[in-house]
Structure formats: structure tokens, C-alpha cells
Amino acid sequence: MQTPSPPGPRDGRRWKIAVMGAGAVGCYYGGMLARAGHEVVLIGRPEHVQAIEREGLRLETRAFDERVRLAASTEASAVQGAHLVLFCVKSTDTEAAGEQMKRSLAPDALLLSLQNGVDNADRLRAVVTQEVAAAVVYVATEMAGPGHVRHHGRGELVIEPSSTGAAVAQMLAGAGVPTEISDNVRGSLWAKLVLNCAYNALSAVSQLPYGRLVQGDGVEAVMHDVVAECLAVARADGVQVPGEVAVAVRRIAETMPAQYSSTAQDLARGKRTEIDHLNGLVVRRGEALGVPTPANRVLYTLVKLIEGKQASA
């Protein structure tokens, strides 16, 4: 006798969701979805998986601090049967993670790329046959310990249209994750890239949170130069960046004053960063398009020097 399959994503009930790359971002969104009653499996590092299996995921936010019970695995094959896969691995691991999980994906699964950078969805599409949609993530989180995610602020998503996009957005909103569907996700990804380029490397090099970082001598001028270069490259690349970027840059420090960039967190833990897909991407696109990017090049080079120093220590 066959076991009935779980409800599908179009019936308005319980979704089966896998989170590929259960770091701070993946754990936050996976935890919120599990808390809302969906069947979630987190796929991540052994120390986090073991802690979650023992005690559940500790989800610490400004509004609540709870232990959320959900499944966890170190194996990419745990994506099997999922209606939705939140793809949250580092940009440097996109192709490798796609290869690891592609044989276990359901044919009709939707893969939602919740990653930094502007080209991850395209790179993932080159590996898997399932539908892939890009998402822009605005959230401040950190892993405060094994199986413990701490949320500092925000949490909204902007996602690309897809065959199940409306249902996905409704489901996420029902779990406390504000979600907007946009026809200009490429522009929104570049808007997020500009913010990352302005803050990530400076926070990493200084090991300062955003609120203290922006008070440093000369920081405002450096950020202005970085942002101007990013926007010049985007224009040359035919990208329409939405919103008032200067206002958005200022708002980051105001809304996330205690947040360290993901690049800063990676360097503090001796891990490889995503700088190649942030300031490094702007430098490469600038070179290809004939747009000078000296401020981005300096920040990229400084982070790479620190990475190299740590790797050889």
C-alpha cells in the first residue's frame, strides 16, 4: 500500500520545503516557515544539524525567542519530495550545490535563489532542469551558535515571477515573511548588490557593525564613490536600478545598526567570502564595459589580502 503524498503547493495547506544551505539566511526563513506549520528540512553543516536534531532550531528575534522543531540533514538528497527549495548556499558554491542535489529534486519543484550577487539564478539554471526564480533578500541575521539563528531586523523578499510565484508569495506572507513579486528582479538584485558593495567589505576590513562603521572618518565619502561606480556599471550594462539608492544606503545603518556584514562574519570565522561576487563582480563588469571602478577595486583587493593571509596562516 502506497503512502499518500503530502499536500501539493496549490492546495493552500502544508508545503514541503527544503533549505539548501542552512546558514543564517536559510535558518531564518526555514525557521519562520516551520513555525507556521510547514514541513521543513534544513540542509547544512554537521554542527548545526546535530544541534537542531537535539534541541530544535533556536529562532531568536526581536519579537520572540523560540525553539522550532524541524528536520535537518547534512545530505543534499534531503531535498527529495520538496515542493519548494530555498537555495541559500554561498555564491561560490552555486554550481557544486546544484550538482549535489539535482538527482533528488522533484520534477515540479521550484528553486528560489536567496543568495547575494546578481547571477546565481542563471548559474543554477545551467545545472538543473527545474524552474529557478531569483529573489532579493533584505534581512539581517547571524548564526549565534550551533543551531541558533539571531534575527536583527527586516526580512522581506522580492521574487521573480514563476509558475507558482503567487502561491509562494502568499505562503511566505502567511509565515510572517513579507513578499513582493517584481518584473524587475534584475534591477532589484543590482540595488541589493550596491548596498552590499557599500557595506560588506568596509564592515569586514574594520570588523565593525553598520551603525559604528558609518561614523568613521571618510567612510561616507568612500561609500559615495563605491555606490557611484556600481550605478555607472549597472547603467552601462542596461540595468534599471529601482528606488532612491542613496536613501537606501543610509537606511541600512539606521535599520540594522548592530549588524555585521556577511563578509565580516566570514572573515571573523576564517571562511572564504563572497567578495568575488560583490565588489569583485562590479570590477569585472566595469572592465568589460569600460567603466572605471577604483574604489570597488581597493575594497575587493583588501578583502582578498585578508582571505589570503588567513588561508596561509
Rank of each mutant, 00 (worst) to 15 (best):
A106R: 07
R186P: 09
K304M: 04
D65W: 03
I252V: 15
T255W: 09
H224P: 06
D183N: 08
N196M: 02
S77A: 15
A166G: 08
P161W: 08
A106V: 01
K16R: 15
G37E: 02
V25D: 04
S312K: 11
G56Q: 13
E142P: 07
A140I: 12
G218M: 11
E254C: 08
Y29K: 07
P257C: 04
R35S: 08
E287G: 11
P107Y: 07
C88F: 07
H277C: 04
L33K: 08
M143E: 00
K271G: 02
S113V: 15
G98M: 05
A71R: 15
I17E: 04
T301P: 05
A264R: 10
R251M: 14
V283K: 05
R123S: 06
G176Q: 02
G153D: 15
E55T: 13
A167G: 14
A36I: 05
K192P: 03
P294Y: 10
S262R: 10
V291Y: 11
V25W: 12
V127L: 04
I275T: 08
Y300M: 13
G174F: 05
H151D: 07
P292F: 06
A140C: 05
A140Q: 01
F87S: 04
D93R: 11
L111F: 12
W190N: 12
I43A: 01
A126K: 01
Q115V: 11
R54V: 10
H83A: 08
V298H: 12
G81A: 02
H151E: 05
A126G: 12
V132F: 09
D237E: 14
A234T: 14
V291H: 14
S163C: 11
I43G: 01
E244G: 11
L57W: 09
A201P: 11
G270P: 03
R54I: 10
S203C: 01
Y138G: 00
R285H: 13
Q259C: 05
L267N: 05
G165P: 03
G81C: 01
N196T: 01
S261M: 04
G31F: 06
A204I: 09
I181K: 00
G8K: 02
R123M: 07
G56L: 15
C88M: 06
P209Y: 01
L267Q: 13
A191L: 05
V239H: 10
P294K: 06
L59M: 13
P7F: 01
V291R: 09
A246D: 13
E60W: 09
E142F: 04
L213Q: 13
A295P: 13
L86P: 01
V249R: 00
E274Y: 04
P146E: 02
V85Q: 06
D93G: 08
E180Q: 12
I275S: 10
S188L: 12
G98R: 01
